[in-house]
Amino acid sequence: MSKRVRTAVFPVAGLGTRFLPATKAMPKEMLTVVDRPLIQYAVDEAREAGIEHFVFVTGRNKGVIEDHFDRQFELETTLEARGKTEALDELRKDLPSAGHSSFTRQQEPLGLGHAVWCAREIVGNNPFALLLPDMIFRAQPGVLRQMIDAYEDEQNGGNVIGVEECAWEDVSSYGVVVRGEGPDTGFTINGMVEKPKREEAPSNLFISGRYILQPEIFNLLADQAKGAGGEIQLTDAMQVLMQEQRFTGVKYEGKVFDCGSKLGFLTANVLFALDRDDIRDGFIKELRNLDFGDQL
């Protein structure tokens, strides 16, 4: 039987260059979709999936992320004194329990594979989930919950990758998988291809920033040569591990928004606002009052 996945790793050391100047002094992971930071969406998804230990791989100028997941006694005291119990309860609900968060530094920007490797001593010899905070999802249940359900199926286990279908004309923008046998809820992955030409793409199922990985990936990353962009690529190590262990794909129910891009970020803000009972009606009214002229 597969070991239970209790730990999640969140790589949050990136420079956020696509959102400059907004991210000059503020981590991109703290950009908000409506009123919640991107990193909070990822943590919420992990908690829903039963994750107990949250490991953040940070870098310089990322201290505000650690502060976000800590108590702020002055703020809490002020809210309590003013009777704002709903806001206070919301803040406390978002916090991981004491001792359930760890922070480690990626001291050089050497890529996603290197960031994952930096978490090796904390994760230890255990399977772990990997969530890229730039990618947030509209999904119920959450994408990681759907993946863990597939992982805990005795016929699957091993390593699991969440995938979503894209238009064939867009496959050259993504890493896509080579689909083997099995249903959408858990099929064999026989390979991965990074940004293939449309006519060479093995599928239109793209990798969307959610993984469950076995600890053997750390040994591979330790010796991994630099790949594309002069960085240590996680995909390269997964391709090697695939020769030894099973990789399962889960075509989850839901939709991803790449909030590392301006277009994905803006789209997510609109759709997540429309999902909110407390602001939906007012937001729709404001949208209808706007004069877009010939822009749409």
Rank of each mutant, 00 (worst) to 15 (best):
A139K: 09
A150T: 05
Q155A: 14
V240S: 02
Q40T: 04
I284M: 12
V143F: 09
K226N: 12
D275A: 10
I284G: 05
G142W: 04
Q107E: 15
I161M: 10
F54K: 09
Q245Y: 11
L213H: 07
E48S: 10
Q140K: 11
L130I: 02
G293N: 10
A222S: 11
R18Q: 11
G282K: 09
R120L: 00
V55R: 05
I207Q: 07
G50F: 03
T104F: 05
D281A: 13
L95Y: 04
G99Q: 08
L234N: 06
T17I: 08
I51G: 01
D258R: 07
T58K: 08
Y41C: 00
N204S: 13
G191N: 04
Q107N: 15
K262W: 15
Q72E: 14
K251S: 13
K226E: 11
F272C: 08
D278S: 09
R71D: 02
Q239M: 12
G254L: 09
V34F: 12
D223W: 06
P196D: 03
G264L: 05
V171E: 03
V123M: 00
L213C: 05
I232Y: 10
F10G: 05
Q295A: 07
E90W: 09
A81G: 07
G264R: 03
E90T: 13
G227Q: 06
A237E: 00
A8F: 02
V64I: 14
E164P: 08
E45Y: 03
V5D: 13
L263E: 15
I65C: 04
D70F: 13
D275W: 03
G175S: 14
E165F: 11
E199M: 11
A119M: 01
V250D: 03
E80A: 13
A268E: 04
A273D: 12
N159D: 08
P141T: 00
F56R: 08
G111P: 12
M135R: 06
V12A: 09
I284K: 12
E244C: 14
T104L: 00
L287E: 07
F137M: 03
L31S: 00
R4N: 13
L221A: 07
V163F: 06
W168Q: 11
